[in-house]
Amino acid sequence: MSVKPQEHVRPTLGSLRRSRTADVKGQVFFGLLLIAVVLAVAMVLAVLFSVIVDGTEILGSRLWSFLTNPSSSDASRAGVAQGIRGSLLIAGIVSLVAFPVGIGAAIYLEEYADDGVVTRTIEVAVRNLAGVPSIVYGLLGLAVFVQQLRGITGGSSVISGGLTLSLLVLPIVIITASEAIRAVPSSLSDGAYGLGATQWEVIRTLVLPSALPGILTGSVLSIARALGEAAPLLVVGAAAFYTTGFQGALEQMQGAFTALPMNVANFAKLPADQWAGHAAAASVVILVVVFLINLFAIIARARITKKLGR
């Protein structure tokens, strides 16, 4: 009896694929992953569509008056103009306060700092601040800006709100700017140091220009974050509705204020049969603003990156 030598079958791509189609466990796993992805995308679409559908009635019938009317107890006249004003001012204050300090801190951490106690303390502080819930920043703002610095900020004013949100986004600005600076190839700065440049000259002429796209994107995104936050403003004392007579610029800055997300929260807290449309319409306004900011950041990053040829 002769043993027939086993025929050597050379695996082909086809045979490998066939073995994969028999992979039941793999198929089930892949199916579960697909369900997760579809669920996640469905959540996004559900939020956007539901809000837009609820908001179309108001946005379709009286878009202009909704954008330009102040808040009111009359549902047919209430609008978000005061919220837009507050959010614009807050965005201005955040970019004036949080950007310079945050970018400065990032430069210090990445370029100057040695590996000492001070540096490590700063790093730990930044990481922990990034995880502190936003409402705790509201408490800080209430204690420091509203109560202790009442003389400067005028109490529950847009200055207090803007400064509180500046503190809130500061760790985000620091972290994103640090990442952008770290991504600059060290050969650039090494070359400059070799030519005898000081640290500041290297930072000013090489590091900052090449890190600019990343820094810009991070900063712009942090503005979007600040514009969406309502919890700290609630604690700092943003008003649901306020009236003013004729005021000077300073009195306006120190007076009552509100912001777009506060408008949404207030409308959502009112009886739904009359006010649900207002909350949805105000949500659409915020979403449009936030998406435009994000889009701007993405496009700006793409353009600058392309220009720098990286």
Binding site: A40, V41, M43, V44, A46, V47, S50, V51, D54, L221, A224, L227, G228, E229, A230, A231, P261, V264, A265, F267, A268, A272, A276, A279, A280, S283, I286, L287, V290, F291, N294
Partner: peptide
């Protein structure tokens, strides 16, 4: 990007979504 869109939706909007949808 679709998932990142979710990250940029303000939480008040999600709050309203909870009671309206």
């Amino acid at each position: 990007p679709a998932i990142e869109t979710l990250a940029s939706i303000p939480s008040v909007v999600l709050g309203f979504f909870a009671i309206s949808f």
